[in-house]
Amino acid sequence: MYDFAYHKPTTVADAVKILAADSDARPISGGQTLLPALKHRLNKPTSVVDLSGIAELRGIKRDGNKIVIGAMTRHADVANSAEVKAAIPMLAMLASGIGDPAVRNRGTIGGSVSNNDPAADYPSAVVALNATVVTSSRRIAADDFFQGMFTTAMEPGELLVAVEFPIPEKAGYAKMRNPASRYVMAGAFVAKTGGQVRVAINGAAACVFRQKDMEAALSANWSPAAVAGVKQAADDMNSDIHGSAEYRAHLVTVMAKRAVAAAG
């Protein structure tokens, strides 16, 4: 790892000031993705801005019909949160399946969402639950936030502050994990919120995406059988040593079926 300067601001405003002044500065939350990337010398930040000293970024609260999760909230905290378990149990379940226990004790929702790894878990929940991403300067709808592999709508110097999840009537998540890396090979998050059905697929393609044929099928008939007949085209699926595009396309339907079954 190349060396860098280290900053530990205590407010979002101070963090943004440092990030805005230096385009080669990188924020670090739990570091579970950034540190392995730095070890591989995949990027060379001039400075690392540790967000762990910013109290306003941490915590979970229920705000009317929404659950608001601060960016620095760890996966373990979401998994164990009584508030999340009561309102969106499937979101707690998703958090409890990220990485492994030690990773969940460091990794954060803000890090996962802003990194937008195609094989991450949270992006599918953000899209399917039609969450709003709150940054240091604006509010971004889930459909506008994830733009491509490791790419989001956030500008340099913009910091993810919180994610607001509307509480759904039904929600389900299922994934097939690579047994070695524990990253998602294909996952499906299905949700019905205010009568609207959304299906988000993660892990299978370069970026999380909505499966609109499945949304239509579930809108007409909310049941595992309804998505069983909906085939995912293999065209845009990832293909690598872990699985072919055709295999991942097949998994999308299987995971969607399981997700609907889990949602009940």
């Binding site: 530990k8 670090i28 570091g31 579970q32 540190l35 690392v48 540790d50 030690a102 004790n105």
Partner: peptide, 20 residues
């Protein structure tokens, strides 16, 4: 793996300065 503030963490993926 070590325990930091009562939680298991991977000390190869934690900066020393994050343990302040």
């Amino acid at each position: 793996v070590v325990q930091m503030n009562g939680d298991s963490v991977k000390s190869c993926t934690t900066l020393a300065l994050q343990a302040e």
